[in-house]
């Protein structure tokens, strides 16, 4: 099991333990985590799964691919050049062993 921590703007925290291969978006949406929408089902087509990855977890992550890069220009809350990612493109086990992310105030 891989641990994913979602930090919300109001200071509250949700922690999930998920199976390998689950994307951060899928984990959030199936558990009803507030603030992550995932409209397009994980195809890097909607940018409503925007998250800010906490600094200490950035190093292990794979680089942003071309399609993710394009959609990161379409986030509602401003993109952070280092920390912004699409949660649907990050997969537990494959891309990280544990991760903590900040959830934006809005996705629309």
């Amino acid at each position: 099991m891989v641990k994913i921590s979602f930090h919300h703007r109001d200071g509250s925290l949700d922690v999930l333990n998920v199976d390998d291969g689950t994307s951060v978006m899928r984990a959030a949406v199936t558990s009803g985590i507030a603030g992550i929408v995932g409209e397009c089902g994980g195809q890097a087509m909607c940018a409503t799964c925007h998250i800010y990855v906490r600094e200490e977890y950035l190093d292990v992550l794979p680089p942003v691919r071309h399609d993710e890069e394009e959609m990161l220009d379409c986030t509602t809350e401003p993109r952070d050049e280092r920390r912004s990612r699409l949660a649907c493109q990050l997969s537990a086990g494959r891309d990280f062993e544990a991760i903590e992310v900040d959830v934006p105030a809005t996705q629309f």
Partner: peptide, 16 residues
């Protein structure tokens, strides 16, 4: 703010 509406569907078949 109407975003989040379902006029294009939602999920993997959301309008291409």
């Amino acid at each position: 703010n109407a975003r989040g509406h379902l006029g294009f569907g939602t999920g993997v078949h959301q309008c291409a």
